[in-house]
């Protein structure tokens, strides 16, 4: 079981070479196959996640949630998707049509790009990048542009307000996000995610870096635009923020991208802090799924408990609390590493 997928990939490459393809082309085709698999996994995940979020939030509120379509309402999301696909696609007449239409595509492309570097098991990733962690952060930062495009293109005050808010929020929270990961990088000595996982052989980084874990969790919630930091949507204030004017599948693309980001960030969290695919008995790819879903459930729990934070508090929280704390954590980690080396422990 452990090497199920890696063996499959090797077999596929071998088969293609026997067909007379050059190894380069075989590599390229394998890359494409990996992409298709990733997109399938993302779509499947989202279908499950949307259902799960509705179900979990319902349980928090003593409701039942979707329970009509299929067992436990599992097909609800599919019905929703069909509804969204068949809905009228409205483009406001005052909107900047090109920007309005490209924004959701850009958003989802950026979200899918995040999966390039996440190790989904032992030796299971699209590209084993040297600077995987940095790549992840930089790709995540691009989604601000998509939101800005959506907000600007809609030509709507609510949309623009939502976009400006979320961009300000995401740029502010990128800094503590990156800083909180630096502690882990300092201990493991690598930006490669597989190396980071390997470094957690004995002890998970959540124990070595609890402050970084917490700051990363908060900053990631803000980066994901999830409650209590769901500024760009903020239904109760901005009537949907940057997504106000979007309908049907265009709106659904934003929705999908948000969930795609959620899975990616949770998977990164599991990889960096919770030992990645490492774990006893079960195969590695199952472990990462279990851990990722665990993190996602915590995200749900937080969202469905807390009220939305106010914009100015949000900004000052980032700059006055999270950034100094994460910087302090870097200092602390450096001191700890120096102390360890001085004592000769590592």
């Amino acid at each position: 079981m452990e090497h199920l997928f890696t063996n499959l990939a090797t077999a596929l490459t071998g088969w293609m070479i026997t067909l007379g393809l050059s190894p380069v082309w075989a590599d390229v085709i394998l890359l494409l196959v990996k992409w298709i698999i990733i997109i399938t996994i993302i779509t499947l995940n989202i279908i499950i996640l949307i259902w799960l979020e509705r179900k979990v939030s319902a349980f928090f509120q003593e409701r039942l949630g979707p329970n009509r379509l299929g067992p436990f309402g599992i097909f609800q999301t599919i019905a929703d998707a069909i509804k969204l696909l068949t809905k009228e696609d409205i483009v406001p007449s005052a909107a900047d049509k090109l920007i309005f239409k490209t924004a959701p595509m850009f958003f989802i492309v950026v979200a899918v790009m995040l999966y390039t570097v996440i190790p989904m098991g032992q030796g299971m990733e699209v590209i084993n990048l040297n600077i995987g962690l940095l790549f992840f952060i930089s790709m995540g930062s691009l989604s601000t542009i998509a939101l800005l495009m959506a907000g600007w293109g809609s030509d709507n005050k609510w949309s623009l307000m939502g976009a400006v808010r979320s961009v300000a929020q995401m740029i502010s929270y990128e800094i503590p996000l990156a800083f909180s990961l630096l502690g882990v990088v300092m201990i493991s000595g690598s930006l490669n995610l597989q190396d980071i996982v390997a470094a957690q052989d004995n002890i998970w980084f959540v124990i070595l870096q609890p402050i970084a874990f917490l700051t990363y969790f908060i900053a990631a919630t803000a980066e994901l635009n999830r409650g209590p930091f769901d500024m760009p949507e903020a239904e109760q204030e901005l009537t949907g923020g940057a997504y106000t004017e979007y309908t049907g599948m265009r709106w659904a693309l934003f929705f999908l991208a948000e969930y795609t980001n959620l899975v990616a960030v949770s998977a990164l969290m599991a990889t960096v802090f919770l030992g990645g695919w490492q774990g006893p008995w079960l195969p590695s790819w199952l472990w990462i799924i279990i851990k990722t879903y665990g993190v996602i459930l915590v995200f749900f729990w937080v969202k469905w408990t807390f009220p939305r934070i106010r914009m100015d508090h949000l900004m000052s929280f980032s700059w006055k609390v999270l950034v100094p704390v994460s910087l302090g954590n870097i200092l602390l980690t450096g001191a700890g590493i120096y102390f360890c080396q001085w004592m000769g422990w590592c």
Partner: peptide, 16 residues
């Protein structure tokens, strides 16, 4: 007030 401030669960408990 709960839902206006984003605490959706607060709405549900009050309504219940």
């Amino acid at each position: 007030t709960g839902i206006d401030l984003g605490a959706t669960t607060g709405l549900m408990y009050g309504m219940r």
